[in-house]
Amino acid sequence: MQRFRSFSRASGTGRVTTQAETLDGRSSPGRAGPPAAASRWGFRVVLLALAVGVVLSVVAAVSVGPIGVPPSVVWRSVWAHLLDRAGSGDWPATQDTIVWEVRLPRVLLSVVVGAGLSVAGVVFQALVRNALADPYILGASSGASVGAAAVLLLGVLSSLGAYALAGGAFAGAAAAVTLVFLAAQDRGRVSPLRLVLCGVAVAGVCSSLTSLIVITDDDIDAARAVMSWTLGSLASARWDLLGLPSAVVVIGTLWLLLRARRLNSLSLGDETARTLGVDLRRFRAELIVVASLVTGAVVAVSGAIGFVGLMVPHMVRLVVGADHRRLLPVAALGGAIYLAWVDVAARTLLQPREIPIGVLTALLGGPFFVALIRRRGGDGATMR
Rank of each mutant, 00 (worst) to 15 (best):
A126E: 02
G377K: 03
E286T: 14
L339V: 12
P352Q: 13
G358Y: 01
V301N: 11
R40F: 10
A32N: 04
G365R: 08
V146G: 11
P66G: 15
G296W: 02
L339I: 06
A61P: 07
L197T: 03
I373S: 02
N264D: 15
R281T: 15
V250M: 02
F283H: 11
V177Q: 01
V69R: 05
Y163S: 13
R326E: 11
R238H: 04
A175C: 13
V342L: 06
W255R: 10
G378K: 08
I215P: 00
Y338R: 07
T275K: 05
S11G: 13
P34H: 02
S72H: 10
S158A: 07
S72K: 06
W100I: 13
A362D: 12
G309R: 12
V249G: 05
G306P: 10
A184Y: 02
W341R: 12
V301I: 12
V308G: 05
V119G: 08
V128N: 03
V294P: 08
L132Q: 03
L333P: 01
V312A: 10
P92I: 04
A300K: 00
T230L: 13
P352I: 13
A340E: 09
S207W: 08
S302P: 10
D270P: 14
V316E: 05
A183Y: 08
S118N: 04
T178C: 06
R274W: 06
A235S: 09
L234N: 13
P71G: 00
G303S: 09
S63P: 06
S302G: 12
P35Q: 02
S8D: 15
I357T: 13
W91I: 01
L293S: 14
A336K: 03
A115K: 03
G252K: 11
D219E: 05
G167T: 09
G87V: 00
M1Y: 07
A331P: 01
L263G: 11
F307T: 04
G143M: 05
L364N: 09
L372T: 12
R274A: 15
S11L: 01
F43I: 03
H324P: 01
V113P: 05
L293C: 15
R281P: 11
R76W: 01
V226S: 05
L293E: 05
I67D: 14
T272G: 06
A166F: 13
L350P: 02
G321Q: 00
V59D: 00
F368D: 07
S207H: 04
L47K: 00
R375Y: 05
D186N: 13
L193A: 14
D96L: 12
Y338V: 11
P352R: 12
F124Y: 15
G321Y: 00
T230V: 15
T210W: 11
V319L: 14
R261H: 14
A225V: 12
V250W: 03
Y136T: 01
G42V: 09
V359R: 01
L318E: 11
A140P: 05
R26F: 02
V248N: 07
L197W: 03
V298F: 06
C206S: 14
R129G: 03
G172N: 06
S39V: 06
L209T: 08
D270R: 14
D186E: 05
S39F: 04
G121V: 02
L182V: 10
L152T: 14
C206H: 06
R9Y: 08
P135R: 09
